[in-house]
Amino acid sequence: MKYFIYIAIWLLSSGLVYYWGKRHTRRRVEEIIQLIQQMRNQDYSIPMKQDDFSVLEDHIYKLFIELVEERERTRQSAKSQIDYLEDIAHQIKTPITNMLLRTETMQDLNQKTQELPLLKKQLQRLNSLADILLKLSSLDAKTDDMKKSEFELAELIDYALEIAEIPDRIEVVVDYSLIGKTIKGDFYWLSEAVINLLKNAGNLAKCTKIKIKADSNPLYTSLHIIDNGGGIAKEDIHKIFRRFYKTPDSKGFGIGLAMAKSIVERNHGTIEVMNVENGAEFQIKFYNVTE
């Protein structure tokens, strides 16, 4: 008899435990469904309960946040794509407008000899824009994979100076600190980046001197290009690496510095700019990557 009561109590209590357990499970499942619902409605408050289900809740929460971030990124890139296309169309329109006006003048006044060279100049400008855009797209598409060869910084500067054609009024000083310093990366792409920095300095009306020096420590090797062209206005300094951003007196397309930045970053480097006495200093750091 006694045993019967024990068994009954045991049965009853385990039944109760089972019932409560079931009820808890059902409630927690409902809470999780509610959490999903709530996140769908863009309420991202973190659930505070601590039990076996919170691990699941945690995972759901993380997945959701990832999806939301991903969606935001897609939206942003679609928007920047549109901005980018608009910028390009704008850049193309300017020389086209110019040329249309000139052809009209040619017809109207029969001034072929005067207008033809100017027409040609605009076409060349349009062509160099196309070249730059093709370069940018091969940088973005990453189809053009960066080579990784070791070379001397001095060689990079020698090559870039040959191509950049800095005007004679500017004195170029290549510091002895470059001697013996090597970096690893894609020679031609990096020379493109350095050419852009040199041309940028060379185009400054006030610039009379460009100094190039190098530095190194166990972490990185750095290249410094310092001009005395008056420096960069405070409101512009954080914008100068943006695509299509250019100061009003610039004759370029506003792509050179942005391209330099992409190239350097794709070669495990960083690029920074700061104002120094009378001018600006561009600093490229090439990090020693261990493979």
Binding site: E152, A154, E155, Y159, G180
Partner: peptide, 13 residues
Amino acid sequence: KVVNDNTLTATIK
């Protein structure tokens, strides 16, 4: 070791 004076660019120059 590539000596600074003997890089390709310097040699062409």
